[in-house]
C-alpha cells in the first residue's frame, strides 16, 4: 500500500556548515521497523535529488524510534555563504516528510 511518510513519522532538521541533518522519528514504536526497512540511503538520496548534492549518511537510533540522515552539500555552502532562503536547512525536515512509501505491510 502507498503511505505518506508524514503519517507515520515526524522530523526535525538542522545544519552543520554545508551539511543538513534530518532526524526522522516514528510516531509510534510499531512504525519504527517501517522506517528502518524503507528509509534507505538510496531512497533518501533519490528524494533529495537536486537538493543534497553530496553523499547521504544514515544512522539508526532505535531507542528513540528514529533515523538520522546527513545530507552533504545541501545548504548552498552553508552559513553566511549560502544564498538560500533556508540556509540553515530548517525546512529539510518537512521536505523529507513529503516522501511517499510503497510498503508491503498493512497499517
Amino acid at each position: 500500500m502507498k503511505i505518506r511518510l508524514i503519517d507515520i513519522a515526524h522530523a526535525r532538521s538542522g545544519d552543520k556548515g554545508d551539511t543538513g541533518n534530518v532526524g526522522v522519528i516514528a510516531r509510534k514504536q510499531e512504525y519504527y521497523p517501517l522506517l528502518a526497512k524503507y528509509l534507505t540511503v538510496e531512497r533518501v538520496k533519490k528524494h533529495f535529488n537536486g537538493i543534497a548534492l553530496g553523499k547521504v549518511e544514515r544512522f539508526e537510533i532505535p531507542n528513540l524510534w528514529a533515523i538520522n540522515f546527513l545530507l552533504h552539500e545541501a545548504l548552498g555552502g552553508g552559513g553566511t555563504k549560502s544564498l538560500k532562503n533556508d540556509a540553515q536547512g530548517k525546512t529539510l525536515s518537512s521536505a523529507m516528510l513529503r516522501m511517499e512509501l510503497d510498503i508491503d505491510e498493512k497499517l
Binding site: 538542522g14 541533518n21 522519528i25 538520522n68
Partner: peptide, 16 residues
C-alpha cells in the same frame, strides 16, 4: 517524549 526527541535530533551527526 515527542518534543524532547525532536530536540535530540537537532544538529546531530553520528548519534553514537
Amino acid at each position: 517524549r515527542q518534543t524532547v526527541t525532536e530536540q535530540l535530533m537537532y544538529e546531530i551527526g553520528n548519534p553514537a
